[in-house]
């Protein structure tokens, strides 16, 4: 290059740095900003209510919702509502996920199960399970049975689909490796197929956990004495919006907690991915 430009000194306008045009498209989460967003919204809301910009009837102030929550704590009903809800959630989610795992694995590995069950799952999955709640009440009674069954059904289908989708995408080379070393079928499933499908299964659980909270509230709104859903429904009927907000906030915390637990599980079991 020196030879080419020799003799003719380039003028300053011809030499310029290469313009940077890469970078970006890599959003990084900054935890503190998330908290600040919450704080700003709550603060604006509180100030709006106190100054009268937001009428108390339309939306109660956060402080009022907090007061309603503290009332609930003092009355001792919080524990009853919470334990009723958590227990239903636990039963429905656990058994729905376990059954979903079993059926999903069968569909993922067995031609007969796949041919028979995969269309059935596709047909039932899109039905909103809330629509089936009256049927569940007839089948399982107005008590705990129908509520747990709704959640169980709601969790079952996403888990089935996530599980067999995950199994379908397991690297067949790993399975051939297992066979070539003479591993038993059970060992291949337990030590190769399921661990490889685990990322898909866990993201399925994330979805089914959110679905189960939605269904929990819906089921509790139809006939339950205790439970967050019942509490929210009663508050709505009485137009006590402060209690309603308190109940809804508890549901949000539920969802966040479940999500956090699944994130912990991912960190624990999928550490090998990073």
């Amino acid at each position: 290059m020196a030879d080419v430009t020799a003799g003719a000194t380039p003028s300053p306008s011809e030499t310029r740095p290469v313009r940077f045009r890469g970078g970006g498209f890599l959003p990084k989460p900054r935890r503190i900003i998330g908290f600040i967003t919450f704080a700003v919204i709550l603060l604006a809301w509180e100030l709006g209510s106190r100054s009268g910009v937001i009428p108390a009837l339309v939306l109660p102030a956060p402080s009022e919702a907090w007061a309603a929550f503290m009332d609930l704590v003092r009355s001792g009903n919080l524990q009853k509502h919470l334990s009723a809800s958590l227990w239903r959630l636990f039963l429905g989610f656990t058994f729905g996920s376990i059954l979903g795992l079993i059926v999903g694995t069968a569909i993922g590995l067995n031609s007969l199960a796949r041919s028979a069950l995969a269309p059935l799952v596709s047909a039932i999955f899109p039905i909103p399970k809330i629509a089936l709640l009256p049927l569940f009440i007839i089948w399982f009674g107005i008590g705990e049975g129908s509520k747990v069954a709704t959640i169980l059904f709601g969790c079952f289908f996403p888990t089935v689909i996530a599980t067999y989708g995950g199994i379908d995408s397991v690297d067949r080379a790993l399975i051939r490796m297992g066979q070539s070393f003479g591993l038993s079928r059970v060992d291949i499933i337990r030590k190769i197929v399921l661990p490889a499908a685990l990322p898909a299964i866990l993201s399925g659980m994330r979805i089914s956990a959110s679905i189960s909270i939605i269904l929990l509230v819906a089921a509790e709104m139809i006939g339950a004495e205790y439970g967050i859903g019942a509490y929210v429904l009663l508050a709505g009927n009485l137009m006590s919006t402060d209690q309603l907000i308190a109940g809804v906030a508890m549901l949000s915390v539920f969802g966040l907690t479940v999500n956090y637990l699944i994130t912990l599980a991912e960190r624990r079991f999928l550490a090998w991915r990073n």
């Binding site: 080379a173 790993l174 070539s180 070393f181 591993l183 038993s184 060992d187 490889a196 090998w272």
Partner: peptide, 27 residues
């Protein structure tokens, strides 16, 4: 008796070196 070595290694990414060897002995 007849044991393969594969082109793409076929190691289980969630198992350690030791775990990958141990996999084929466990059964």
């Amino acid at each position: 008796p007849l044991t393969y070595v594969f082109q793409d290694f076929a190691l289980l990414p969630w198992r350690s070196v030791e775990g990958n060897v141990s996999l084929v002995l466990e059964g």
